[in-house]
């Protein structure tokens, strides 16, 4: 699969995945195609259960695509690895290690033999400072707030110096204010490091604020890329100023109309199959999509 002349940084090509169910295979994703350039920030948005987390898990190597594949810098992805670091929704810090030790575990693994002890220490502290966690480095996850845990999770992922940073609804479990803070931090880090980022989200504002492109996914079964929206907003972006900008309003409207007018979730046509097939998706996503959709529908009816 190696092709040195390939211009794409990350290529998701014809990716389909079937999950086995008692009633036969359930096709969760069907022919997902996506090209991502180096340094690009791409959000994937869609309703709960549309398989957007599944796409991320395939890129991460945690799931194997049934058909098609993912190519990163000319090499096919077929197992998880630190060059595709993941920030999980539920922080996934080891609860028995301090913030510092959590990052250290990753750094030791990735830079074994490449950095000296002192260099590693400096690198760990540097990354924790980047996410503004230098004041609580030696606290354990149960001693810090949810937002702080997520910051450490981001620091751990950044410390691996990934080629692609994968964010699986990183701010989904946080309250609105903390989420805003972390989004600002994320933009700041992105401006400094210029990482390639794929972020899964169900928050329209978050997607528009952070992304260069927004990938909108149709509903499952056999979910696929519906539309891709280019966000032409200047950086650095300020959430308050942006709220007034026509481009921001256009993007926001485009995503909303995709999600709720053209691809409004047909109310649970096959709820059983969905639960069986994409359990991880259902679990990690609060059924917010449904609620919003019902509200929009009733608003329209009125």
């Amino acid at each position: 699969m190696t092709n040195k002349n390939h211009p794409d940084h990350l290529l998701i090509s014809q990716v389909s995945i079937d999950f086995p169910t008692p009633k036969g295979p359930y096709r969760a994703l069907d022919k997902v195609n996506l090209r991502i350039e180096k340094g690009e920030f791409v959000s994937i948005i869609g309703h709960s259960g549309c398989g957007k987390s599944t796409v991320l898990n395939i890129v991460a190597g945690l799931y194997q695509a049934t058909e098609g594949g993912v190519i990163l810098d000319g090499r096919e992805v077929n197992e998880p690895g630190p060059e595709r670091a993941v920030v999980f929704q539920n922080h996934s810090l080891l609860p028995w290690l301090t913030a510092y030790e959590n990052v250290e575990l990753a750094v030791k693994q990735v830079f074994k033999g490449r950095k000296t002890k002192a260099e590693m220490k400096e690198w760990i502290e540097h990354n924790l400072t980047l996410v503004h966690m230098d004041h609580a480095m030696h606290k354990r996850p149960d001693e810090i707030s949810g937002g702080m845990k997520q910051r450490v999770g981001i620091a751990r992922a950044l410390a691996m110096e990934p080629q692609v940073l994968l964010l699986d609804e990183p701010f989904g479990a946080l309250d609105a204010l903390t989420r805003a803070h972390l989004q600002d931090s994320m933009m700041e880090i992105q401006a400094t490091l210029g990482n390639t980022v794929i972020m899964i989200t169900h928050d329209v504002d978050e997607a528009v604020l952070l992304s260069d492109r927004i990938v909108m996914m149709s509903n499952g079964p056999a979910a696929t890329v519906g539309e891709i929206l280019q966000v032409n907003l200047p950086r650095p972006r300020n959430r308050v100023e942006m709220a007034e900008m026509p481009e921001y309003i256009r993007c926001r409207h485009a995503v909303l109309s995709f999600l709720y007018e053209r691809h409004g979730r047909k109310e649970a046509a096959t709820p059983k199959a969905r639960v069986n097939a994409s359990k991880t998706d259902e679990e990690s996503e609060p059924a917010r999509g449904n609620v919003v959709e019902l509200k929009t529908l009733s608003a329209k009816a009125a």
Binding site: A60, G61, L62, E79, P80, G81, P82, R84, A85, V86, F88, N90, S92, L94, W96, L97, L105, A106, Q109, V110, M160
Partner: peptide
């Protein structure tokens, strides 16, 4: 927890490190 197992996979922890750092605790 599945999450911690995924962390271990992403980090490509060796079998022994996985047992020591994640399984035993």
């Amino acid at each position: 927890s599945k999450d911690l197992q995924n962390v271990s996979k992403v980090l490509r922890l060796s079998w022994w490190t996985h047992v020591r750092k994640i399984v035993l605790p």
